[in-house]
Amino acid sequence: MKVVVYPGDRWGCGSFRMIWPGEQCAAAGHDVHVVEKDRRSVRLVMERDTVRDVLVDDVDVVVLQRVTHAYMAQAVSVLRAMGVTVVVDVDDDLSSIHPSNPAWQVHRPGRGLHSWHNLAAACRDATLVTVSTPALLDVYARHGRGVVLPNYLPDHYYGVSRTDSDVVGWPGSFHSHPNDPEAVGGAVARLVDEGAQFVMRGDSSGAGKAFGLAADPVGGGVPIEEWPAAVASLGIGIAPLADTRFNSAKSWLKPLEMSACGVPWVASPRAEYRRLHAMGAGVLADRPRAWHRELKRLRESPALRQEMSEAGRAVAEQLRLQDHAWKWAEAWQQAYEIQQATPRSRVAV
């Protein structure tokens, strides 16, 4: 069974969901080929705005990510009618993105060829949909052809050196989390007034006002290869998520990254964060007073920071990608078997 994996990008989502799992499966002996976006050989044969044919190399399973383009969404059913298995992977509920998130403008229907409606159609027609959280199954795989593949971490997240401190930090970019600082209320501003240092690892433009600070915190993006070291540079991490439909389907990736890097963390009680906390990592805070209390405890206790750092690393050790990559291979095999059992006459084109 030949599998070709087409990541949607070469950054975070593309790496965690497609590139790194695909490479792990290939290393384990599976016939898996990861083809980055600028090297794709897929060609669409168009008749005006309709996809009539798809020219693709000899392949059994095509794995696509975040199919939001109208023509690629059409290509899903065309490929299936040709007998090709199509797996669509989704990591976020794009239909509920916050309007202040730049991705909302890109994916809102009616603006152009990309939309979350196209993604819904692609998932409807796909042989199998893979998602990062159970909540996403209800959004994109109500037809029952869905598998949850949680986010796991590659080896370079483990064993990263870290120097303890009481610096509080958020490993995230404000533009992609425009309403999440509201989860902490005035807790961060109160800590800063008490003498705490607050920083970000990611774009901090606009975050100062959102957290109630006099200025944007120190921040800035880093290459994906340097991200684990950037996360590890934090003394205490935060993972705030507002109580929204979009966030109810978010994965545990951010606190998991902090756990693997030995950073003690405080997070909002969203579903997947609760799941990771139940395994023994981090602490949850459901209101500003709790955020302030838990962060203050960590700032004032090096012993508590060390205890939580060790506990987080122990939990993250169970969630190495190399130990779970077989789940991707198993899902692709399941998709192939579904496709083989589906008469081509039943695939809508």
Rank of each mutant, 00 (worst) to 15 (best):
V131K: 07
P171K: 03
L153H: 02
R346K: 14
H114T: 05
E36T: 14
W104Q: 10
D91H: 10
V59K: 12
L234P: 08
L119A: 07
A81K: 14
R299S: 01
L191D: 03
R52F: 01
R190I: 00
H107G: 06
F174E: 06
G14L: 02
G83V: 08
H98E: 04
G235C: 09
C13V: 12
D53I: 10
A230F: 05
H33S: 14
P217G: 04
T85M: 07
P288G: 04
M82I: 02
D138A: 13
Q322I: 12
T85W: 06
V347E: 11
D243K: 09
V347K: 11
D164E: 15
H98P: 01
V67F: 04
I338D: 00
S233I: 08
W328E: 00
I19V: 15
G195T: 10
L241N: 01
D203W: 09
A278P: 03
D203P: 12
G212C: 11
A242I: 02
V35T: 13
V199F: 05
L234E: 01
A28E: 15
L191H: 09
V51L: 08
G159I: 06
A120L: 15
D93E: 12
E317M: 10
S77F: 12
V283F: 07
R344Q: 13
A73L: 11
P99Q: 14
S100H: 13
P343E: 11
G195E: 09
E194V: 02
V86P: 03
L298I: 01
H107A: 06
A329I: 01
V231I: 12
V51H: 09
R289E: 15
V62H: 04
S96W: 00
S248Y: 00
A242K: 05
R124I: 01
V139W: 06
V63G: 09
A126N: 12
M1H: 11
Q65I: 12
R124D: 13
T133R: 00
Y140L: 02
K250D: 00
G220Y: 01
Q322R: 15
S41K: 14
L213A: 09
H175I: 13
V131N: 07
A348Y: 11
R275N: 03
M18D: 12
S165P: 04
A27Q: 14
R142T: 03
P102I: 11
Y6P: 05
L241C: 02
A122V: 10
W104I: 09
V147I: 14
R270K: 04
A335M: 08
G262F: 07
H324V: 11
V160C: 06
Q74I: 02
E317Y: 04
G208N: 10
P171E: 00
R346F: 00
S309M: 07
E310Y: 01
G237V: 02
A183Y: 01
V67M: 07
G12S: 14
R43M: 11
L304Q: 13
L295C: 08
